[in-house]
Amino acid sequence: MRVIIKEWNAVAAWRWDMPDDDVCGICRNPYDSTCSKCKYPGDECPLLLGECNHSFHMHCIISWLRQESSLEKCPMCRQPFKSKSQDPVTPAPRQTQTANATPTTAT
């Protein structure tokens, strides 16, 4: 006896669950809110737009790009992620907190 499998019930494997209304695809917090590590939205936790037109909280996309497994690809479309702004999204050396180190002269 020979059974021929005519049809596998293969459900569509996966798809992006997008677009959710204006949330970062990594932390799923709204763009006008912060990444999961920051407290205050705005300058402290800016957004970064990629050349592929996907945007993320800068902190979110940087911590993704730092993962070796990311291969520096956009989480949404898997194209190489390049920032649209002039600043390259290389994991920049952390800003040293010189402010704390400078002694303030009290008069």
């Binding site: 596998w8 019930n9 293969a10 459900v11 569509a12 494997a13 996966w14 798809r15 992006w16 669950d17 997008m18 695809g25 990594i26 979110c60 993704w64 497994s69 690809k73 989480p75 949404m76 898997r78």
Partner: peptide, 26 residues
Amino acid sequence: DVLKGNWSPALQIRTILLSIQALLGA
């Protein structure tokens, strides 16, 4: 693949479980 090299933070628990269900079918 999506549990290994093809993981992306845009994927979710839900999408992963769906892929596993699909793997049972194929």
